[in-house]
C-alpha cells in the first residue's frame, strides 16, 4: 500500500476534509493564516465576475452565429422565393419564439452549409412537433 513518503501521506490526510464541519474547516484555515470571512466575500465576488463574463461571452457568441446565419439568408444560397419562411426563421433566431426554439434553430443551421425551402420547412415542422413554437407563438398572440 505504501508508495509515498510520510510527509506526503500526512499532507494528503490533512487535505481531505471528509467528516469535518464548516466550522472545523474555518477554524483550521484560520490556524493556517487564512481569513475565512474575507474568503467568502472573495469567492462570491469571483463567481459574480465569472458569471458576468460568461453571460457576455454567450451573447457575443450568439450574436456572431446569428450574423453568420443572416449572411447565409442574404447570400444566393437561399432561394429568394420563400420570403415568409425566411422571415419566420429570422424571428425564431432573434428569440421571438423563445430561447429553446432559437437554440434549436441555431444548432440546426450550424450543420448546414446551404439551405433549401425544404430545409426550412422541415426545421419549422420539427420545432412545432417539439412544441417549441406553439407555446411561444400562443404567448405572442
Amino acid at each position: 500500500m505504501k508508495n509515498k513518503d510520510f510527509t506526503t501521506s500526512l499532507y494528503d490526510f490533512m487535505a481531505d476534509t471528509e467528516g469535518l464541519t464548516k466550522e472545523d474547516i474555518i477554524s483550521e484555515l484560520e490556524v493556517s493564516g487564512v481569513d475565512a470571512k474575507s474568503l467568502g466575500k472573495k469567492i462570491s465576488k469571483l463567481v459574480n465576475r465569472c458569471s458576468e463574463d460568461r453571460r457576455l461571452a454567450w451573447r457575443i457568441n450568439a450574436k456572431q452565429k446569428r450574423a453568420e446565419i443572416e449572411d447565409l439568408f442574404k447570400s444566393n444560397k437561399v432561394t429568394p422565393s420563400f420570403t415568409n419562411l425566411k422571415q419566420k426563421m429570422l424571428d425564431i433566431l432573434s428569440g421571438g419564439y423563445g430561447i429553446e426554439a432559437s437554440s434549436y434553430a441555431e444548432a440546426y443551421f450550424r450543420k448546414k452549409g446551404e439551405l433549401s425551402e425544404d430545409d426550412i420547412a422541415s426545421l419549422i415542422k420539427d420545432l412545432e412537433n417539439l412544441n417549441l413554437l406553439e407555446e411561444n407563438g400562443n404567448k405572442k398572440e
Binding site: K2, K4, S9, D16, E18, G19, E28
Partner: peptide, 30 residues
C-alpha cells in the same frame, strides 16, 4: 498514515471502526 492509508473509508476498513469513529479520531489527530 505511515502506510499511506489516508481516506476515511480506507481507514475504517483497515481499523474495523465505523465511519463516525474514524471522523472523530481524524478530528482529534488533525
Amino acid at each position: 498514515i505511515e502506510d499511506g492509508i489516508v481516506k476515511a473509508e480506507a481507514i475504517a476498513l483497515e481499523t474495523n471502526w465505523d465511519i463516525t469513529r474514524v471522523y472523530n479520531a481524524n478530528k482529534r489527530f488533525r
